[in-house]
Structures are given as C-alpha cells and as structure tokens.
Amino acid sequence: MKSFNYKKQNDYKWAMTIDLDRCNGCGACVVACQAENNIATVGEKQAELGRKMHWLRIERYIEGTYPDVKVRFLPMMCQHCDYAPCESVCPVWATYQNPEGLNVQVYNRCIGTRFCGNNCPYSVRYFNWYDSNFEGPESNQLNPDVSLREKGIMEKCTMCMQRIRRGKDTAKDEGRDVEDGEIQPACAQTCPTNAITFGNINDHESKVHELVHSGRMIRLFEDKGTHPSVMYLKGGVADVI
C-alpha cells in the first residue's frame, strides 16, 4: 500500500501511541478532553438516546465469568486515518486530510448531513443535537482557543489543534522546529500512567517513532485499510484485545 509522503509537504506528521498495558481505565483523559475542548454535556435523557458527546471514550471489554474476570480498557478517539472513510462522503468538504496528517473537521463549513458519522468504522464522530448550554459558572471554565459548536454540526477529536498551533507559534518565535514532547494533547498530559504519547513521527528520534517501531504496535481495524495515525501498543505477555 502506498503511503502519504508528508515529508514532502511538511515536516510534521503527528501521531499518537496508546499503551494498552499501561492504561488502567481511570478516565482522567476523558475528563481532560471534555474540559479542554468545551465539549457539551447532554444529560441523562439524551445520553440514553445515544447522543452523548465524548471525543475520547474508554471502551471496556470484560472477559470470563466471576470470579475469573478480566477487564480490558481501550481509549478510543478519532484515529486520524490517512485513508479516512469519513472524508470521501462529506458533500461540502468539511472534513479532509491536512498536510500534517490530521483529519480536519471544519465546523463552519459543516451542514450536518451526518454521512461522516455513519461511515466512520470507529464511531468517534459526534453530532450536536442541541446548542451547547454553558450557563453560569460553567462558562468561566471554557477554553477561549476552542470555538463553541452550534446545533446541527459534527465534531470530533482534533488532537488538541489549539495546543499544536501554540507549540508551533512558540517554536517559530525562537526560530526552531517543535521539539519532541513539547506539544501534549490534554489526554496525554493528564494520563497518570503515561500511557499516551504524542509526537512527530517524521522525526526519527522522537519517542512516538521509537514506540511505533518497538514491535508492539497494532492499528485498530487494520483490515479496513484506514491506516490510522493513532496506534495502540499491546503487550507481549498479556493478550490485549
């Protein structure tokens, strides 16, 4: 399979690894993502209808019966596929692949057909059924770098684009490239066991490059040929997922 040559267009190709042996399912990343990206809460009723909006969610797999029970966790967010099924079905090009290997969702271009959410094999795109209602003290904790989404549009994980932009901004002021570990998405920053690593995979000395080539790397639904930028590390000992 041919691969995008991001080196030609841009020096950065963002990627993320999630170590499934380190993840203990605490959910700190979910909360961090919610706070960082101004994600709306929908309430019990709407959540029952499947309208909850967590850009990052912890999937839980339970094996065996009591008392021999094993629980496995898998943090699931937008996989930022190189060959993204969501992109080809958008009628207004609101979602596309950007030169840094991220799957972009342009909120102000989206018209809310929800084709992309339907076509995503990972079910990580979320539709705004209502306007976000941050009232009272809630509005004081909103992140000013992230826009509030309106009713009727799709949203999803952006790999904390506002942080990438800020990191690149600082690097440009100092006349250098972004260093490894300088940019951290909210989930990676919060993870207590350091299971999540983010970095530039084009930089062959980066931590993420080392982890991807450690032989433990798996991609989800690899048979679909989506070629995700989010990669999971499974242990040699434990049979993870």
């Binding site: 596309y96 950007n98 840094e100 972009v104 826009s147 952006t158 684009m161 506002q162 932009r165």
Partner: peptide, 8 residues
C-alpha cells in the same frame, strides 16, 4: 491556507 490554521 489549511482550514485549521484559523478555524478550530
């Protein structure tokens, strides 16, 4: 001119 330069 990438969209995410100005819009997120």
């Amino acid at each position: 001119t990438d969209c995410w330069t100005c819009h997120t």
